[in-house]
Amino acid sequence: MFEKVAEIIADELSVPKEKITLESDLSEDLGGDSLDAVELIMAIEEEFDVEIADEDAQKIKTVQDIINLLE
């Protein structure tokens, strides 16, 4: 799960995959802005065939938060 999510994040935020850990903060550590966040959520929804509600999406700060939502 982490591997796949990290791959998507690396792709969407144009950061090296090695830089991504569970604790990484999407904006502070990985430099994502609000538009990146929306595109990231869209890519994750597509890859995992899930629907992430806007209120859940807004609470996402770290990579762990994404994985918690998916599990």
Partner: peptide, 9 residues
């Protein structure tokens, strides 16, 4: 292709 909040692709 997809929309999310105020963003559309």
């Amino acid at each position: 292709l997809k929309t999310k909040g105020s963003i559309a692709v």
